[in-house]
Structures are given as C-alpha cells and as structure tokens.
Simulated assay, not measured.
Amino acid sequence: MASIDVWRSRSRIGLFALFGTAGVLHIGLPEPFVSITPAWVPNAASVILLTGLCEIAGAIGLFVPPFRKYAGAALALYAVLVFPANIKHALDDLTAPAVSPWPWLYHVVRLPLQPFIVWLAVFAVGIVSWPLKDKSPGG
C-alpha cells in the first residue's frame, strides 16, 4: 500500500487538474457558470472571473510548500461556498423538461462528491490524515 505522502501527492495532482481546469473554464467560458450562479450573487460575471482566478491560484499554491496548507484550506472553503450554485444547477436541470437522463445522473454523482472534494483538499496538504494512518514522526 502506498504511503500517506504518496496519497497526498496524488491528491494534490488531482486537485491541481480539477481546480486548474475549472479555473481556466471559469475565465475562458464563463457563461455556463454565470447561468448557475444564484440570483442573490451580485455582478455574477465578475464573481465568476474572480472564482476562476482563485481556483487557478489555489491549484498552483498546492505545489508551493510555504503556501500549500493555505491553498488547501482555501480550496476546501471555496468548495463549500460554491455548493449553493451546485444545488441551483441541479434544481434547474432536474426541474427542466426531461430531454435525457444525463443531467439527473450527473447531479446524483456530482452533489455527493462535494464533501469528498472538501476533505480531499485538506487531506492533500496535510491538515487532516483521517481515515489514513500517518506513520511519520509526530503524525
């Protein structure tokens, strides 16, 4: 079995790919993200641009040791804060006339993954070890 450090490294790579790609999409193709932003969010287009920049900064920060824990904590917090948009997106898709089962399947998988993404962000940077056992000195 791989050591916890290997799992953390793999997790950082995965999160870099996830948040880096999402950040680039938020900046380069903002319309889908603006459309799922709840109405109470002011100036949605600017918020989407800012969130894209934050995702990219957080993804890069995962590989800068002095900033790693801050980046992981910020990405975890970000995943919590965007959850209302994820819920709005699901409700919009699930209350629209059914064209295919794909929106339903996407949201059934996507929404429960959000807590995992939150956990993965704090695990990847060493804030938590649960449920793995950290066998390093002081771990």
Rank of each mutant, 00 (worst) to 15 (best):
A2K: 09
V6W: 14
R12V: 07
I13P: 07
G14W: 02
F16P: 08
A17E: 04
F19D: 00
F19Q: 01
F19T: 00
T21Y: 14
G23K: 06
V24K: 14
V24T: 15
L25P: 10
L25N: 13
L29R: 14
P30T: 03
P30V: 03
E31V: 03
A39C: 03
W40A: 15
V41A: 15
N43G: 13
N43T: 11
A45W: 09
V47D: 10
I48S: 00
I48W: 02
L49Q: 15
L50Q: 15
L50R: 13
T51C: 14
G52L: 04
L53E: 00
L53A: 02
E55M: 06
I56K: 15
A57S: 11
G58L: 02
A59V: 01
A59E: 00
A59W: 00
G61F: 13
V64Y: 13
P66N: 04
P66G: 05
F67K: 13
F67P: 10
R68Y: 09
A71N: 00
G72F: 05
A74W: 13
A74N: 06
A74R: 05
A76E: 03
A76C: 06
L77P: 12
L77Q: 03
A79F: 05
V80I: 01
V80S: 08
V82N: 14
V82Q: 08
V82K: 09
F83T: 01
F83Q: 10
P84F: 05
N86L: 08
I87W: 09
H89E: 01
A90F: 11
D92W: 09
D92Y: 12
D92I: 06
D93H: 12
L94R: 08
A96S: 10
P97Q: 07
A98C: 09
P103W: 12
W104H: 13
L105E: 08
Y106N: 11
H107A: 11
V108K: 03
R110Y: 14
L111D: 07
P112N: 10
Q114D: 14
P115C: 04
F116R: 11
L120I: 04
L120P: 08
L120W: 03
L120F: 06
F123D: 00
F123L: 05
A124Y: 02
V125S: 01
V125Y: 08
G126M: 09
G126A: 07
I127M: 08
I127L: 04
W130V: 04
W130R: 06
L132W: 13
K133E: 00
K133L: 05
D134K: 05
S136T: 11
G138P: 13
